[in-house]
Structure formats: structure tokens, C-alpha cells
């Protein structure tokens, strides 16, 4: 009953002009609530594809993905969006803040989408927690890489998701910022009781997770 996420014989294939590329091959995975999982593997092994499937951003070729006991592979795009909106926060390697929104607006967007009260105020409080008090009204282009990633994390966790998906969140940062970002992420999931699936090449970061998964040629090894 404690299961948050369950992947059952999940396959992902891409069809090219010439042949079929198997990206993920019969993946089985169970994640419990408050779990922290790191996924490691070589480039092209299928790590990011796995996160995309879990986030409902890609459709699996076959297999089932259950999120909170609901089969998301059977849902429409909008229904999956609704789940993502309420329960899943995503952190990208390249931050992907909306360029013409300020830091507060980027964070408030997800709160407003989930109909939180006083979204601007809550966004400010969150950014303040991440040491960005003086950056509320700055546009992404006026922020450093570390600051941008902190805003991106604030945006991902603002609506208190049950699951955070982080795709190489420190990949574009220097070591000092990498440590800061990983501390923020792990501190948050510990305090709030969310689950975290983090894709990384950084073994130090991977070691912080309770479970470590390695993917090779589309299979969990």
C-alpha cells in the first residue's frame, strides 16, 4: 500500500527509417513513498528516457506504469498532465525557466496552476528559503546558473509534489553550486516526505539516495 510508482515490463522503442531502436527493455521498478532513487548509467543507456516515461512525457511502447495505483499508460495526454500538475515536479539539467517571467513568476506559475492561495507570497517564501530573497524580480537572464537551478527546484517543489524527477540537476553547475543544489533537494524530500528520482553521472550525488539503480543498454542491471 506504500507503493508510489510501479513499472511493469516497460519497453520503449523508436522506429527509424531503417530499423527499430530499443531504448528501454522490460523495465520493472517499484518506488515507495519517501524513497530516494538515483539512476546512473552511460550516455544513451536510457536513463533520461526512463524519467520521461515516469513523468508521463513520453508514451511507453508496451508495459504498464502505475502512479499511485493509477495506470498512466492508459490515460490521455491531458489526464497525465493533470497528474503531473498536482503530483510530479521536474528539475532539468538546463533549468528551463521561462525567460520572460521573473523568478517569483516562474515559481508562482505552478502554484497558480494548482489553485494555491497567495501564490506570489508562497513563491517568495520558497525563494527566500533557497537564499534568493534579493532575486525575486530578476529575469532568468539576470541570474547565475546556480541561482537559476534553485529557482527551477523551487518551481518543481512549490506545489509539494509526491514525486520529484531530477534529470542531472547539477550537470550544468560548478562543484560548489552542485553541492548546494543536491543539499537543497535531499533536505527538501527529507523534510516534506516526497520521493525523489534523480538521474546523475555524479557518484557522490548518487550515493546520497537510499537506492541506486544502474541502467545499461535499456535494462536495469
Amino acid at each position: 500500500m506504500n507503493t508510489l510508482l510501479k513499472l511493469k515490463k516497460v519497453n520503449l522503442k523508436y522506429q527509424t527509417d531503417k530499423d527499430t531502436i530499443k531504448v528501454l527493455n522490460n523495465i520493472d521498478l517499484i518506488t515507495k513513498k519517501k524513497d530516494t532513487i538515483s539512476i546512473m548509467g552511460e550516455s544513451g543507456s536510457g536513463k533520461t528516457s526512463l524519467v520521461m516515461l515516469i513523468g508521463g512525457l513520453e508514451k511507453a511502447t508496451s508495459g504498464k506504469i502505475f502512479f499511485q495505483n493509477q495506470d498512466i499508460t492508459a490515460l490521455s495526454e491531458d489526464e497525465v498532465s493533470e497528474i503531473r500538475r498536482k503530483h510530479i515536479g521536474i528539475v532539468f539539467q538546463s533549468f528551463y525557466l521561462i525567460p520572460n517571467y521573473t523568478a517569483v513568476e516562474n515559481v508562482a506559475l505552478t502554484l497558480e496552476l494548482n489553485k494555491f492561495k497567495n501564490p506570489q507570497q508562497q513563491a517568495k517564501e520558497l525563494l527566500d528559503r533557497f537564499g534568493l530573497k534579493n532575486r525575486f524580480n530578476n529575469l532568468p537572464s539576470q541570474l547565475s546558473g546556480g541561482e537559476q537551478q534553485r529557482v527551477a527546484i523551487a518551481r518543481a517543489i512549490a506545489m509539494k509534489p509526491d514525486l520529484i524527477l531530477a534529470d542531472e540537476p547539477t550537470g550544468n553547475l560548478d562543484s560548489k553550486n552542485s553541492v548546494m543544489i543536491s543539499n537543497i533537494l535531499f533536505k527538501y524530500v527529507k523534510e516534506e516526505g516526497s520521493s525523489l528520482i534523480i538521474v546523475t553521472h555524479d557518484s557522490k550525488l548518487a550515493n546520497k539516495a537510499k537506492r541506486k539503480i544502474k541502467i545499461k543498454d535499456g535494462k536495469i542491471v
Binding site: 513523468g55 498532465s81 493533470e82 503531473r84 525567460p99 506559475l109 518551481r155
Partner: peptide
């Protein structure tokens, strides 16, 4: 393009 993709990732419907 990117802002649209981000909004979709945050749970905005295409519509």
C-alpha cells in the same frame, strides 16, 4: 517553443 514545453511539463494542457 521552450516556454511552451516548460508549461506542458508543469501540467498545462495544450488547449
Amino acid at each position: 517553443n521552450m516556454s511552451i514545453a516548460v508549461k506542458k511539463a508543469l501540467g498545462f494542457f495544450s488547449l
